[in-house]
Design a binder for these strands. Structure first.
Length: 258
DNA sequence: TTGCATGTTCCGGA
DNA sequence: GTCCGGAACATGCA
């Protein structure tokens, strides 16, 4: 699930259920805490209160006492509050026992993880360099960022150092709505192509965040991409797929000419 | 059994 | 230095 809209959903979920509560116990699988031992994570978090979580791109930064707990969800991560789901699950990799309930970090494939940032430590030491958050970026800035780059448009949109938060599915959705083939190189795009890309980025993020994930109100490529015989929701042409940057891109050969 | 999967990172080659 | 492709990480599903 986790691209920007889902992580924004996790931020709100954490606010609703866990913010302000005191951490009583911490349990974590060894490999899932990436820059500390589970013991040290426990020592840092135990007894502290969870502050207001912030999201930047696909990262969640959660103040806990004077430290910060950083969460990244990889491809299969999520948060679960015990009040919503009483049973633990075998893929729950970190458990925070709070007063009044338990918050669980769940991640089947373990491509995500949690990091501990010590007081005063820069978050970017953990996250690596990140561009501006895609949701708080205005269209003009996005056009400016993109037009300074040389490579393919899809790679640029997915590059977290350029813009933070967009992943494979979202970028396919954006390019489909903007009518731009995923293999196009930025220097050959016209200014109005970039303007349309910036506009649809804003639109796709707004709709999917408001819908709490991806809750389509109109035609979405996202809804159809998994079906092998899928047709373009706009023109009815059979959808096509290519590999770009090692990932599958779904696009409409009618609406997105090479 | 094989291929594929929403992310990131590292490596090698052009 | 830039850009791209491929592999790796761990696990489940069609």
């Amino acid at each position: 699930m986790p691209e920007l809209p889902e992580v924004e959903g996790f931020r709100r979920y954490l606010r609703r259920h866990a913010e302000g509560r005191r951490i009583e116990r911490v349990r974590a699988e060894p490999g899932i805490v990436r820059n500390a031992s589970p013991q040290r994570l426990g020592r840092a978090l135990r007894g502290a209160r969870i502050g207001p979580p912030q999201r930047h791109g696909k990262w969640l930064a959660c103040p806990v006492g004077d430290a910060t707990l950083l969460l990244h969800f990889g491809m299969t991560g999520s948060l679960v509050w015990s009040g919503q789901e009483p049973e633990r699950h075998r893929h729950d990799r970190m458990l925070l026992s709070l007063e009044g309930g338990e918050l669980r970090y769940r991640d089947m494939r373990k491509l995500g993880g949690v990091w501990l940032a010590r007081p005063g430590q820069e978050l970017e030491e953990v996250t690596g360099p990140l561009g501006p958050d895609a949701y708080r970026l205005d269209r003009g800035e996005l056009v400016k960022i993109l037009s300074g780059k040389r490579g393919g448009i899809k790679a640029a949109l997915m590059d977290q150092r350029a813009v933070a938060g967009l992943g494979n599915l979202l970028v396919d959705e954006i390019l489909w709505r903007a009518g731009v083939h995923p293999r196009r190189a930025i220097p050959e795009l016209r200014e109005d192509d970039l303007a349309r890309i910036a506009e649809t980025t804003e639109e796709v993020l707004r709709l999917s965040i408001e819908g709490g994930g991806v809750a389509p109100d109109g035609p979405w490529l996202l809804e159809r991409r998994d079906r092998r015989d899928a047709a373009c929701p706009r023109c009815g042409s059979p959808l096509d797929r290519v590999t770009v940057g090692g990932r599958t891109s779904v696009f409409c050969p009618g609406c997105q000419a090479p």
